[in-house]
Nucleic acid binder design. Structure first.
Lengths: 230, 230
DNA sequence: CGAAGCCTTGATTGTGTTCAAACGGGGTGG
DNA sequence: CCACCCCGTTTGAACACAATCAAGGCTTCG
């Protein structure tokens, strides 16, 4: 939290990374810096609210009265998402320190979209891509083994959250991974240990992972079909 | 398949049941009658394709190379859905005989939406409602027990697929229910048997179910908290 | 230094899968 | 007409995977 003004200006420059017509919204973007655990309000008025992730990570979490919970979406840098009060059973929360968002009031977005055909289409595309991702997640959660779930999670982060040296930096805790994949924390740990012992991945610190054998992750992993290197 | 012409005219009249601005699309609706198992093509061109379910049931199914599959969406009468080639790993298929759809080419839908602000907003709403449903399903599949899954499925059908006497008519086979809830067929059967023996539901035929104790379905069902009434 | 989170590993338990078998209805062909 | 088969459904028995319970290590922060 050094200099709030400077930080906002710095991140505002990163808005231009947005695709195509969506950058036309930047004129009225508001920059939000969030600490870990900071909740994003989900009663944003009738027209909802749009967000764009600049750095950090955000989760959308569905919670039941008995405490069981499920992360239904995980937003990383360069992701757009929409919040409306029709999903009021979900909570939205920053889960990494230094999370920075751009925020766009739904009312104004709709106004611009009425005049801008291309923007309207891209907003629709964002919605359908979110839907496609969510449906892919249904297959993962419903039909994969715990080991495969963790494997597919690592693969999905590769490219979305990997550093220059090709290492995946987990933006979230084991607990969040567990809640995202619908398994227990212990199972996530055991899966990572298993993959490490098989030589499929290497752990450089608890949150940094190097994928050594990509095809082993992509194929079905139930078999002991791979040779443990080292 | 009696008189194809008459049937099309009959169903065309049901289009006016659509909500609000969406009915403005009816001018170029094409009526499709599908047998069970009939596949809806999912390579509909760049602008995708919109459908509206008039009668019957349609599933969107994600399949893996090893045969595991997951129904990621279940469309019933009065549901809108959108097909684009970005979801080409999914197959879309009628799963009830006498399934009738209205079909709208995406290209023309977009053209109308460019001029009609209200329609554009409703199309976006359809997308977001689909997303919300899909995310609710993630919680169900990931965190509920088999018994709770079947219970929530029956509740979701109550109102969407119930007849005049308040009985739920299952539009799909046990296999489809299993694929939708990410459990095995046997588990679906056992859950239904369990609910029947507890007096929560009554089966009038294999596909017709009367909910006797609604609150027992809504509450958590792990407990034996209910009295079995005959 | 203690407390609180997060991560890891082991032992035990339990829920749901898998395998197996049998029933019923609807269609087809002998 | 009956035999037959296919499909959907149901139930039982054995097994397996992941959850739960328990405990210990590690880091960070007050």
């Amino acid at each position: 939290m050094k200099t709030k003004i400077h930080a906002a200006d710095y991140y505002r420059r990163m808005l231009s990374m947005q695709p195509h017509a969506l950058k036309r919204l930047d004129a009225f973007a508001k920059i939000m810096a969030c600490n870990r655990g900071r909740e994003i309000p989900n009663n944003p008025g009738p027209a909802g609210h749009w967000y764009y992730v600049i750095t950090g990570a955000v989760r959308r979490c569905a919670v039941r009265s008995d405490g069981r919970r499920q992360i239904v979406d995980l937003m990383l840098p360069r992701d757009f998402f929409f919040v409306s009060d029709s999903q009021n059973e979900a909570t939205i929360e920053a889960i990494a320190d230094e999370t920075v968002l751009a925020s766009y009031p739904g009312q104004r977005v709709e106004l611009v979209a009425e005049r801008d055909v291309e923007l309207a289409r891209e907003l629709r595309d964002v919605a359908f891509q979110s839907l496609t991702r969510s449906q892919a997640q249904l297959l993962i959660i419903g039909r994969l083994t715990a080991l495969e779930k963790v494997g597919s999670f690592l693969l999905s982060l590769d490219g979305r959250a990997s550093d220059a040296s090709g290492q995946v930096v987990l933006p979230v805790s084991r607990y969040d991974i567990a809640d995202y994949l619908a398994v227990s924390v212990e199972t996530v740990c055991r899966a990572l240990t298993d993959l490490r012992q098989r030589g499929v991945i290497r752990l450089a610190g608890k949150r940094t992972i190097k994928i050594l054998n990509r095809s082993a992750l992509e194929d079905r992993m139930s078999e002991s079909s791979m040779v443990a290197g080292v």
